[in-house]
Amino acid sequence: MSSQHTVEQTRPDQVRQPMVRAQNVRKSFGSVEVLKGISLEVQPSEVMCLVGPSGSGKSTFLRCINHLEAVNGGRLYVDGTLVGYEERGGRLHELHPRHAAAQRRDIGMVFQRFNLFPHMTALGNIVEAPIRVRKESKRSAVANGRELLERVGLAAHELSYPAQLSGGQQQRVAIARALAMRPKLMLFDEPTSALDPELVGEVLDVMRSLAETGMTMIVVTHEMGFAREVGDHLVFIDDGVVVEAGDPRSVLADPQHERTKSFLSKVL
């Protein structure tokens, strides 16, 4: 990230730099506009919960934040750095893949379907990127990986392959894998949606304790209990726009918009 200087010097509100700042973010697939101008800010150490109906663009927005998808309009900044582009001479230039990868490694991502590497053990999954990308020594990566496994309650499973773990255990390994890169921001895309109901709690517990350590998190979820309890902010997205945002407790208790009301009546 250090290689991206630029625009930020001219920003007016330098004192309070948000971890994520989306300004009128647009994204289309072909002729279909999926994100129709999303603006929001996430402050450091904040937990933002994104909710919304299926197909509203939540995953797409998360994927834009770490440039798995390129935005077509607006600006997206993470920790003050423009995502995916570089502004030079008043024009945006596509980022070299190497720089895009460098941006991503500071952003952890947890997927609905875990996406653990099935040919590597739990510990192997965790140390892979620190060793290959951060060039950590094997010894320190393994030590740190064991610590992380302990943190997510899986110290006994470091030699298990993903297929030998339950869904909840796999997702906890996936969280540990993301944390091993020492990210400053964690993105969760419906981390508990693929889990059997009795396994949801163990994953939410890990996320809750992560939030307590001050990690900045954006969580796409249908777990309103988690949003109410852990979320600092709740954003309701529908059809590619932010319909309503605010304190989770008040939004959930007293939604202002019709669309929010009808959505919440279905999931609560």
């Binding site: 893949p97 460098a102 991502m109 997927f111 996406n115 590497f117 040919h119 892979e128 990127a129």
Partner: peptide
């Protein structure tokens, strides 16, 4: 999802191909 998880960790194309995609 495998490629995506790898790229999201900051792995390059060749690392993703060589370490994640090819062995599978």
């Amino acid at each position: 999802g495998q490629r995506e998880a790898s790229v999201a960790l900051g792995m390059s194309w060749s690392q993703t191909t060589g370490r994640i995609v090819f062995p599978q």
